[in-house]
């Protein structure tokens, strides 16, 4: 496992994910991906589901990847990487490895659309089969590559183009699917949540390093604030991510062996959800008097879930 150390040391890591990609200015995907690929010294084979990351980093004739990389479709990043991992095992057994002196790690990236929704079956399958890979969900809470449609990760009250606010609508009606817990329920040896940016950089890098050095299927759900569709200024990406953590809208925790939960960051004082919601255009309609009940509901749910996490951690079961 790579020793992450301090940021001054970590910043000496040569980038294996190059700039010149076409992600929006301030896109959190770039931050998360850089940290994940820098969190190991092993060689990497990566698969990526169709989505923002894929379309922006492999626009022919350019690639942003200094590691082996594969994109097949929207719903099969996990299946694709499971095939590559199986080939690695087969060739190792048959003494036909391409680089015998190098360990290879397998990573799949998918957005929440490719992970929570259309790719969920292949992720669940690859996880159940026990392939040795890390799946990182870049969770921007909607189909942002195609102009911001809802997904099963879109939080209640959020405006998207397919759950729009309107005269009689407060936006998304359903609560965000709890994918991290669903992945833990698969019995994965390691599951975690993470956010990008300088405040929690070590939390993310360590989780990635840990996941990459764990044998078997591991999963990181990384919140990826979307400047374009969440409607905030590009320079605020890290602040928004931090607020998601400080309000406990997106708590940072990890689960080992499917059950052992550790909260990896506890806000000194939990901020009210308005602090997070009010910074994003997708929630602006919730601040109208007739929708104030939605914010109350969100707060209630956040409180309940935060309580649940703490109790689960304490119980240690």
């Amino acid at each position: 496992m790579k020793n992450i150390g301090n940021l001054k040391e970590f910043a000496c890591t040569p980038d294996r994910f190059q700039g010149g990609h076409r992600l929006c200015p301030g896109c959190a995907h770039g931050m998360i991906v850089r940290e994940v690929v820098n969190a190991t010294e092993d060689d990497l084979v990566i698969s990526t589901a169709t989505g923002c990351l894929e379309v922006c980093t492999a626009i022919y004739p350019y690639t942003s990847w200094d590691v082996s990389w594969l994109h097949i479709g929207f719903e099969n990043a996990a299946a694709g990487i499971s095939g590559a991992e199986a080939m690695y095992k087969a060739l190792s057994r048959k003494n036909r490895s391409y680089n015998e002196d190098k360990k290879v790690k397998f990573v799949a990236f998918g957005g929440d659309g490719g992970t929570y929704d259309i790719g969920f079956q292949s992720l669940s399958g690859a996880t159940e089969r026990g392939h040795d890979f890390l799946y990182v969900c870049l969770d921007n809470e909607g189909y942002m590559n195609t102009g911001g449609q809802r997904s099963s990760s879109t939080p209640i009250g959020a405006h998207t183009t397919t759950s729009p606010r309107g005269r009689v609508s407060y936006g998304e009606k359903n609560r965000k699917k709890d994918l991290t817990m669903i992945m833990a329920a698969h019995g994965c040896p390691y599951v975690a949540t993470a956010v990008p940016g300088s405040k929690h950089w070590k939390d993310l890098a360590q989780k990635a390093a840990k996941a990459l050095s764990t044998v078997g299927p591991t999963f990181i759900n990384a919140l990826s604030p979307c400047t374009t569709e969440w409607k905030f200024k590009p320079q605020d990406t890290v602040e928004i991510a931090d607020l998601a953590v400080e309000t406990c809208m997106f708590p940072l925790y990890e689960i080992e062996d499917g059950h052992k939960l550790t909260i990896t960051y506890k806000p000194k004082q939990k901020l009210p959800v308005e602090e997070y919601l009010s910074r994003q255009g997708r929630f602006s309609h919730l601040f109208k008097p007739e929708n104030s009940w939605v914010i109350e509901e969100i707060q209630k749910e956040v409180d309940r879930y935060w309580e649940y996490l703490q109790r689960k951690e304490e119980a240690g079961v």
């Binding site: 000496c12 301030g26 940290e35």
Partner: peptide, 24 residues
């Protein structure tokens, strides 16, 4: 800035600190 940059823009030089440890 280096860790938060989504575009891998920051130019880094590896130097040694007073205790001889490498840092960016």
């Amino acid at each position: 800035c280096w860790v938060s940059c989504p575009d891998s823009c920051f130019l880094v030089e590896e130097v040694e600190n007073k205790r001889g440890k490498k840092q960016a």
